[in-house]
Computed example of a mutant assay.
Amino acid sequence: MPLWQWLLDGVAVLVALVVLYGLALVVRRRAVSRHGATFELSVRLREDRPGRGWVLGLGRYQGDTLEWFRIFSVSPRPKRLWRRSELEYVGRRVPTGPECATLYADHLVVQCRTPDGPVELALAPSSLMGLQAWIEAAPPGTAEHI
């Protein structure tokens, strides 16, 4: 078989893999959304350089937990979980420097405290209102309300 046919076959396989990956992302997004409404939620995973370390993702409230899924992963499981009783809202700010290019245009950076240390999230103002309401809506009798 001539070299050009090998190259053409290689390109066809590569295109097929990209299409399959895209379909897997769509199916995963629908499966994640089926078990509760999702919203755009970015998380800062690394803090070694100012303004860097952000990863785009999806957030979903599942009972008393906030689940975070990476946007370009095909895994059906959340990458991070935060329990309502352990997540404390500290404040918010607008993205600065390189964050403006990394995050979605209208998102705000939210600082939270957890038992594992500080967490920075980026989400839309409407989603921030939902997050604050979710944190404050803990059932009566939990540690925050005693």
Rank of each mutant, 00 (worst) to 15 (best):
W68Q: 07
F69D: 08
F69E: 05
F69R: 08
F69Y: 15
F69A: 11
F69S: 08
R70F: 07
I71F: 11
I71T: 09
I71D: 14
F72H: 11
S73Y: 08
V74L: 07
V74Q: 08
S75M: 04
S75N: 13
S75T: 10
S75D: 13
S75F: 02
P76H: 07
R77A: 09
P78C: 00
K79G: 11
K79D: 11
K79N: 09
K79E: 12
R80C: 08
R80Y: 09
L81P: 01
L81W: 02
W82A: 03
W82K: 04
R83H: 13
R83W: 08
R83Q: 13
R83E: 08
R84F: 00
S85W: 02
S85H: 06
E86H: 13
E86L: 05
L87A: 01
E88W: 03
E88L: 03
E88G: 01
E88R: 15
Y89G: 00
Y89R: 02
V90Q: 14
V90R: 15
V90K: 12
G91P: 06
R92N: 09
R93T: 04
P95W: 00
P95Q: 02
P95E: 01
P95L: 03
T96S: 14
P98C: 03
E99F: 00
E99L: 00
E99R: 02
E99C: 09
C100L: 13
C100P: 02
A101F: 08
A101P: 07
T102I: 11
T102N: 10
T102R: 14
L103W: 02
A105I: 00
A105N: 09
A105F: 08
A105R: 10
L108F: 04
L108M: 03
V109T: 05
V110T: 00
V110F: 01
Q111I: 05
C112H: 09
C112K: 05
C112P: 11
C112V: 04
T114I: 06
T114R: 08
D116I: 01
D116E: 13
G117Y: 06
G117M: 04
G117L: 01
G117Q: 07
P118A: 14
V119D: 10
E120A: 14
E120D: 15
E120W: 10
E120G: 06
E120Q: 15
L121I: 03
L121S: 06
L121P: 11
L121W: 09
A122Q: 07
A122N: 06
A124P: 03
A124T: 07
P125K: 05
P125I: 02
P125F: 03
S127Y: 01
S127I: 03
M129S: 15
M129C: 12
M129E: 13
M129P: 13
G130M: 04
L131W: 05
L131S: 09
L131E: 04
A133K: 12
W134G: 04
W134E: 06
W134P: 03
I135D: 03
E136K: 15
E136V: 08
E136C: 12
A137G: 15
P139M: 12
P139K: 14
P139V: 10
P139S: 15
P140H: 11
P140N: 13
P140D: 13
P140K: 12
G141Q: 04
G141W: 07
G141L: 06
T142N: 13
T142H: 13
A143L: 12
A143Y: 11
I146D: 14
I146S: 14
